[in-house]
Design a protein around this nucleic acid. Structure first.
Length: 193
DNA sequence: GTTCTAGAAC
DNA sequence: GTTCTAGAAC
């Protein structure tokens, strides 16, 4: 007899925080790969171009990095820069990591600085790419070289996500997200020639 | 990480 | 009344 309970028809694909592992195998998202890493398009890009570079080696986060991973991190950044060079040379990009990422599996962001995307919606989105919460790849590598590990204070960095909204170019205060999104259109994100 | 939506802010 | 943000999601 029918119990009246709805049956679970959807396949269990894991917790949302493990989503990057699924995306790494999604041919729709993968744009490049070599023996050490895979580059995918961010499923919810926060700018005109937004890529994620993921090592094939299992590394959950920055905290799992050891001194021997310096070479790998340099490789990830090099791969990202090469992809960007062959994708869009006209826009400025930043290459870096979130200090306290939501998704598991180490991922380097390569993101164009226009932040022109319908997926960019919240203060948290904004501050995660425009405050010190976004740590340049070069700084992470330097830190690993110097200290043999990379660790960021969770409380301190999470607090940055609640910072007041400011333009990442001119620093002007913006009252809300729609105002910010309108304002940032007044700047150019082209590389200087 | 996103979606949804209640209620704050305007 | 509409826009916008913030917090739950079993």
């Amino acid at each position: 007899m029918d119990s009246g309970k709805p049956s679970k028809v959807q396949k269990f694909t894991g917790h949302w925080s493990q989503g990057l592992l699924t995306s790494m195998d999604d041919p729709e998202l993968v744009v490049k790969s070599d023996d050490r890493a895979v580059i995918i398009k961010d499923k919810y890009p926060k700018a005109k171009h937004h890529f994620l570079v993921l090592p094939k080696e299992t590394l959950p986060n920055l905290k799992s990095l050891k001194p021997e991973h310096v070479d790998l991190l340099e490789h990830l950044e090099k791969m990202a820069r090469h992809l960007v060079d062959t994708t869009d040379k006209t826009l400025k990009f930043r290459y870096g990591y979130h200090a306290v990422p939501s998704m598991s599996h180490l991922h380097l962001h390569a993101i164009s600085q226009d932040f022109d995307s319908p997926c960019l919606k919240t203060k948290k989105h904004w501050n995660s790419f425009t405050t010190e919460y976004f740590v340049d790849s070069k700084d992470v590598i330097e830190r690993l070289k110097k200290h043999g590990k990379v660790e960021y204070d969770i409380k301190e960095n999470t607090a940055l996500l609640n910072n007041d909204l400011r333009c990442h170019v001119c620093g002007s205060a913006q009252k809300n997200m729609p105002a910010l999104k309108t304002h940032i259109k007044c700047h150019s994100y082209k590389v200087e020639s």
